[in-house]
């Protein structure tokens, strides 16, 4: 009896997404020392990094919802 199994580690989309977002939350792509414009007193680059961090959290939510299906609880009769 074969069930449909999904694991994040086996999905190329998950790896690509994680690598891209990892690159975006690391601020290597801004000129060193640059901080203007400020948005509500926060340097623009920090706002972008925070935005990328939120994107990473949202991506994690998507991965958990769609890429993780092991049926581990089926043996126990749980849903």
């Amino acid at each position: 009896m074969k069930r449909r199994i999904r694991e994040p580690v086996k999905s190329p989309v998950v790896w690509i997404g994680f690598i891209l977002l990892f690159a975006l939350v690391t601020p290597w792509y801004f000129p060193s020392g640059d901080f203007r414009p400020l948005l509500w007193g926060v340097p623009y680059w920090a706002v972008i990094v925070l935005g990328a961090s939120l994107a990473l959290s949202l991506f994690i939510t998507w991965v958990v919802a769609t890429q993780w299906q092991t049926g581990a609880d089926d043996d126990e009769g749980e849903s």
Partner: peptide, 11 residues
């Protein structure tokens, strides 16, 4: 420097 984007060491 506390506001600025990090330099290569900081990255």
């Amino acid at each position: 420097e506390k506001l600025g984007a990090p330099d290569s060491g900081g990255v």
